[in-house]
């Protein structure tokens, strides 16, 4: 009696944060990647404002290097919810010379997304961007606030963050500055999956097992796409795999798996000994890869 389960309490906290965003900011936007965390965010946003529609658009930063299934899922979700979707294209940032395409075998547009993201925030005058970052994902994220201040250049100053006490969130800022807000800060990967199961939330098919053309680079299975260059010792194979996280195709490590349902995925995660981002090529660039990207304004 009078005791919430951990999922109910996490949901209550996230709903509270969503409503705080709507109350404290004038032009919020929800960062939507088509990955499970942002799908959960959308679900929580629907609950927070029901029976009204959630009062902000979705923003997808499109690297052009996507899993087709994720894009198809995105478009269906937007259609079903009659939500507003804004897409910022990394290709446009490259074409206008603002971003410079990386070269070499590990070329990825992951880092370039920051430029497109900050430009889009500027263009639409968004004053806060809601993201699906979680503190358990990565060590610099463990230090992140629910309401995370960004200066005029979109930069994060991790050594000088505002203290955050109780459930009182300070969203005050000067003109031109903005906030990143992380409603599911306190969720773990397992919480997200258990919640997806409990709420019967639909996901893109790439989260479940399927056959795909892949190749192995430094121990990480990557999906093959025509624009990717293989090294001499790398060969394309067909494997039974699924995505544990969904990001840009060039840096999303795949898991060899036969899990076909959310229950099976939960069992798989409970038994795994590698973290969720352990397969992310973008984090392997250095020990502080995420912190460095975040300081510049990354998600």
């Amino acid at each position: 009696m009078f005791q919430l389960t951990h999922l109910e309490e996490l949901e209550a906290e996230s709903i509270y944060v969503m409503r705080e965003v709507a109350a404290q900011f004038e032009r919020p936007v929800l960062l939507f990647s088509g990955g499970k965390d942002s799908i959960v965010l959308v679900h929580i946003a629907r609950k927070a404002f029901w029976p009204a529609k959630f009062p902000f658009p979705l923003l997808h930063i499109d690297t052009g290097h996507n899993f087709d299934e994720a894009i198809q899922f995105r478009d269906e979700l937007v259609y079903n919810l009659s939500a507003k979707l804004i897409v910022g294209y990394v290709q446009e940032s490259i074409d206008t010379g603002k971003a410079i395409e990386e070269e070499g075998f590990n070329a990825s547009r992951n880092v370039l997304q920051t430029i497109t993201l900050l430009d889009t925030i500027e263009e639409f005058k968004f004053d806060t961007a809601i993201g699906g970052g979680r503190r358990d994902e990565e060590k610099s994220r463990a230090k992140e606030r629910f309401f995370s201040h960004r200066d005029e250049f979109g930069q994060w100053d991790p050594k000088n963050q505002r203290p955050e006490l109780w459930n009182v969130f300070n969203g005050r800022k000067r003109m031109g500055e903005h906030f990143r807000v992380f409603p599911i800060s306190n969720w773990t990967e397992m919480d997200v999956w258990q919640y997806i199961l409990k709420e019967s939330i639909a996901l893109p098919s790439i989260y479940f097992t399927h056959e795909r053309e892949v190749f192995n680079r430094d121990g990480v299975w990557l999906a093959f796409a025509p624009f990717m260059r293989l090294k001499e010792n790398e060969k394309i194979e067909v494997k039974q795999i699924r995505c544990r996280t969904v990001g840009d195709i060039t840096c999303t490590g795949l898991t060899l798996s036969t899990a076909n349902t959310v229950e099976e995925i939960i069992q798989e995660i409970a038994a795994t000994r590698i973290t969720e981002r352990g397969g992310r090529y973008d984090d392997k660039r250095s020990d502080a890869a995420m912190e460095d990207r975040k300081k510049e304004g990354y998600f």
């Binding site: 951990h6 503190r135 358990d136 060590k139 610099s140 994220r141 463990a142 230090k143 991790p158 050594k159 963050q161 800060s185 306190n186 773990t188 397992m190 919480d191 020990d287 502080a288 912190e291 460095d292």
Partner: peptide, 27 residues
């Protein structure tokens, strides 16, 4: 438990870090 570059370099903890674990009874 040291998440930031400066913390690892200086061997000190600057800020509150949040950690998560679960047992069958509680998160």
């Amino acid at each position: 438990t040291d998440g930031l570059r400066a913390e690892r370099e200086q061997g000190i903890t600057i800020d509150v870090a949040y950690r998560y674990f679960a047992t069958p009874k509680r998160k």
